[in-house]
Design a protein around this nucleic acid. Structure first.
Length: 399
DNA sequence: TCTGGGGTCCTAGGACCC
DNA sequence: TCTGGGGTCCTAGGACCC
């Protein structure tokens, strides 16, 4: 068996060009709304524009660049088409990220199949992909990165050695700046240096994930290709806002994030058993709070009241904050047949019905049509909200 | 114009128990 | 009052990735 890794080249920019052929051949950059470049067309790269470059700088230095807002919904649809195309050739596909996937190929015809997948993707999606084929995920990943864009690299046991000789250890998937720096100080510079150290040396000098990386790089598979839709571990919503120390605004931001996370959870029919939220100060310090729940929920009011009752342990008046975030963790599928004490489940069931209705309205009229009144104090977004108010039981005021 | 948003996994150290 | 050793569970936060 061989593992295939597919990576969209400049994916976001490629999606924009695929939808709007007039952009073809131009230096296209996405990420306007974020203030930094998130993806570039080859022409933009040729100018010297790179990921993370500030948009104002691009505008100044490269007036010919076409800068567009990212449209994640569109990119998600392209991603779905990409996975579907790959599934025509093999059922065993892992949807790794919005522009990447792994798949398992049978050894016979692996090169032919891989090439066929690549050309089919290119033809049907109107963009190029870089492809790596190797015995393990880590090797497939470095292989696909090797000849970007439009690359096609096959690694087998006979070619691994030469390939890793020319690969900086920090380029390996899973080895970041910290580990890379540490390895350099120990005399390990290339990926080949790394795999040539004995197992004992890895165990003594590095953390356990590095041992897995070590095996993978040597061609022994450790990481599985996750074919099934495994249940998500956590849902997170965060948002940055113009810095403020006003409690009301911060709570309202938190409320917005809680709502967003709960909408996501209900859409995926998940409930959380543990919530965690944070305030981020203007100095980029995090104040966190974690709350285990007795009864799983995906109801924003329940979560919000817990947040409110603990908020003062994190919040200090006079401190400037720039972002908040909420994570729902220990997720589990919604189960309607739980029998439980304390009547909390009964209360949650009632809420569930209401939010089912809310979700239907959202599907019909767009997300955010109905939102909790407590989310409406957000800085600079007030004017976006509709003004009709009504009162629903258990939800407080709804707009 | 410093630094977005969404994830996963691991580890050190504290709390608590025997 | 001070001394142990051993174990588990939990939390804060680091590291990495897209």
């Amino acid at each position: 068996m061989a593992i295939l890794h597919i990576d969209g080249d400049g994916f976001f920019a490629s999606c924009e060009i695929s939808l709007n052929p007039k952009l073809k051949g131009k230096p296209v950059v996405t990420g306007q709304e974020r203030g930094i470049a998130t993806a570039m067309s080859p022409e933009a790269k040729a100018l010297g524009i790179h990921r993370g470059m500030p948009i104002f700088e691009i505008k100044k230095l490269f007036p010919t660049a076409v800068i567009v807002n990212s449209n994640y919904h569109t990119y998600g649809m392209f991603a779905t088409r990409m996975y579907d195309i790959v599934r025509r050739f093999t059922e065993r596909v892992e949807e790794y990220s919005i522009d990447e996937c792994f798949a398992i190929l049978e050894d016979k015809d692996r090169e032919h199949t891989a090439r066929l997948i690549k050309t089919t993707l290119g033809r049907e999606l109107g963009m190029t992909f870089s492809v790596g084929v190797a015995p393990t995920k880590v090797l497939a990943k470095v292989a696909s990165k090797w000849n970007k864009p439009d690359g096609f690299t096959i690694l087998d046991n006979s070619s691994i050695h030469d390939f890793l000789k020319n690969l900086a250890v920090g380029k390996v998937w899973g080895i970041g700046p910290q580990t890379s720096h540490h390895l350099h100080s120990l005399g390990v510079v290339t990926a080949l240096d790394f795999i040539e150290r004995p197992e004992r040396w890895i165990r003594e000098n590095l953390s356990s994930p590095m041992l897995e990386t070590w095996y993978e790089l040597k061609g022994t598979p450790v990481y599985k290709v996750h074919e099934s839709d495994d249940i998500q571990k956590s849902i997170q919503k965060t948002r940055t806002f113009p810095h403020t120390s006003e409690k009301k605004i911060i709570l309202s931001e938190l409320s917005h994030n809680v709502e967003g996370a709960c909408i996501h959870a209900r859409r995926d029919k998940l409930e959380t058993k543990r919530i965690y939220y944070f305030l981020k100060t203007q100095e980029f310090r995090y104040k966190r709070c974690e709350i285990p729940l007795d009864v799983p929920t995906n109801d924003p009011m329940t979560i919000l009241s817990l947040v409110q009752s603990t908020f003062d342990t994190l919040y200090k008046s006079g401190v400037e904050y720039r972002a908040t975030g909420v994570t729902l963790s220990e997720l589990r599928p919604t189960s309607l047949n739980q029998t439980d004490l304390f009547g909390e489940v009964v209360k949650n069931l009632k809420l569930k019905k209401i939010f089912d209705v809310v979700d239907k309205i959202d599907r019909k009229f767009g997300t955010g049509t109905v939102s909790l009144a407590s989310s409406l104090t957000s800085v600079g977004r007030r004017h976006l909200h509709p003004t009709r108010r009504l009162n629903l039981p258990f939800m407080g005021e709804v707009v």
